[in-house]
Design a protein around this nucleic acid. Structure first.
Length: 185
DNA sequence: TTATCGATGGTA
DNA sequence: ACCATCGATAAA
């Protein structure tokens, strides 16, 4: 009853990328594939802030891959990395700004995952949901295949850290743009 | 416990 | 040639 079952709308994603990355902590990602629905609470994110952010794919310019990031907020940006993993991002801010939030970790809300409900790492997160490149560009503000519901917690405590695996990003590599949920209740 | 390294393929 | 990774294995 206390559960917020409405999908977060475009307005939520159109805000500043750092704010969205922080506010997504504790929100629930829902993915429907065929008959199965998987739900998990977001526990870790990273913000990628447009063409000027050297860690952001969009800093290389507009390409076939980054096309979705240049589009409107509230879309899924999914790409393959290291030949074997997918990463899930949500596009933020105004169309053309090429910003996105990477989902780095979730906590499963399904009973069958007792014992190890936490999924850490963007590759593992996508594997948990069964997300592949066919999710790239999907509208996440409608309850279709993938969407996000609001927080299930009253209080959100979090910490920040440097982003992972972007040593090439010069002055941007040490920005504290990684958000990690701390409270566990 | 931390460190290293191979798998594997899209992108530019 | 480069990677916004993971899991297995080795070293300590």
């Amino acid at each position: 009853m206390t559960r917020n079952k409405k999908a977060l709308g475009v307005k939520f994603y159109e805000k500043d990328t750092l704010a969205v990355a922080r506010e997504l902590l504790g929100c629930v990602v829902c993915v429907k594939r065929g008959e199965t629905l998987r739900r998990a609470e977001i526990i870790e994110t990273e913000a990628y802030c447009g063409e000027s952010d050297l860690a952001c794919h969009a800093s290389k310019g507009r390409t076939k891959r980054t096309e979705v990031m240049f589009g409107p907020a509230g879309r899924a940006y999914v790409y393959m990395i290291y030949g074997m993993y997918f990463c899930l991002n949500f596009v933020t801010e105004k169309e053309g700004s090429a910003c996105a939030v990477l989902i780095r970790g979730v906590r499963s809300l399904h009973g069958e995952d007792n014992g190890a409900p936490e999924i850490r790492g963007p590759g593992k997160t996508c594997r948990f949901f069964g997300i592949d490149k066919s999710f790239n560009g999907l509208d996440i503000t409608k309850k279709d295949k993938i969407w996000v519901e609001g927080k299930t917690r009253e209080k959100i405590d979090f910490k920040t850290d440097k982003r992972v695996g972007i040593d090439y990003a010069g002055e941007y590599k040490d920005k504290p743009w990684r958000f990690i949920l701390v409270n566990s209740v």
